[in-house]
């Protein structure tokens, strides 16, 4: 049996998530041995035509060109996994969705007429069918290996969608919100980072997006009782996963009240 063909594509993003694959170090050679790297410009100059057995897509859809390209990639892919907050939620660049993009282009570019862009930055799943979404800004390389591993062995990936709190408690971190009064998005954020920030006495920034059953307004009410104002709440929710529905809707509520 020939090895599955791997394609890695990117849209609007920083490349950090696909670099997680190269960051796998010890496991990289095993991954490289298990798949045929058919299209991965960050890793190899060899470009092979599709179709691809496993396609990883990073980045959000922000241009008319992206809209066409993602459809072609989907058509060439048997199994398509989006990786990272840009691809799964629209990324930090989805902040444009609340603003006027043409106004931005006038400020930023000397010749805005050359810029062809969409009004919004949206996740890949808004445009084509996606087989699995791997969250995170950036993604966790162990989760990436798990997803690739699950694909290779034809099983369901073990990627939990519960809260970051579960990871804090498992690693023995005392809750930074309860013990230190630090506002934390952990209770409404999906696990996956290993509860990194609270382990260093920081509140969670929500990099892995909303957890499976987020009660954002209830957490927001508690933040308010801690003295956090609505403007700060909007800023906290409008991060890398700003356009993920639960964060978006709650941020709109606080934005109206701020």
């Amino acid at each position: 049996m020939s090895k599955p063909k791997l394609g890695v594509f990117k849209f609007a993003s920083c490349d950090g998530c696909q670099l997680s694959l190269l960051d796998c170090e010890d496991e990289l050679l095993t991954v490289a041995g298990a798949v045929q790297i058919a299209f991965f410009p960050e890793a190899s100059r060899e470009y092979m035509e599709g179709p691809y057995d496993l396609t990883l897509v990073e980045g959000s859809i922000t241009t008319p060109h992206d809209l066409e390209a993602i459809k072609e990639i989907r058509a060439q892919s048997k199994f398509l996994i989006t990786i990272g907050a840009c691809a799964t939620a629209g990324g930090i660049q989805a902040l444009r969705n609340w603003k006027d993009v043409t106004e931005f282009t006038r400020y930023v570019y000397a010749h805005p007429e050359y810029i062809s862009t969409l009004e919004t930055s949206t996740p890949v799943a808004d445009h084509v069918a996606v087989d699995f979404e791997l969250r995170g800004c950036p993604i966790n390389k162990w989760q990436l290996i798990e997803v690739v591993n699950a694909f290779l062995h034809g099983r369901k990936p073990n990627i939990p969608s519960y809260s970051v709190c579960v990871e804090c408690k498992r690693r023995g971190t005392a809750c930074v919100m309860v013990a230190q009064g630090i506002p934390c998005l952990g209770p409404v954020t999906q696990a996956g980072c290993g509860a990194l920030c609270p382990a260093y006495n920081r509140g969670c920034y929500g990099c892995f997006g909303p957890m499976e059953s987020p009660n954002v307004l209830a957490l927001g009410e508690w933040w308010r009782s801690m003295g956090v104002d609505d403007r700060a709440l909007v800023n906290a929710l409008r991060g890398f996963n700003a356009y993920a529905e639960p964060f978006r809707e709650a941020s709109d509520v606080y934005a109206q009240q701020a």
């Binding site: 809260s163 709190c165 408690k169 209830a218």
Partner: peptide
């Protein structure tokens, strides 16, 4: 349920 975050902290502690 209006207040509960279903974050699991109560069970883990």
């Amino acid at each position: 349920a209006k207040r509960c975050l279903t974050c699991a902290n109560c069970t883990l502690v």
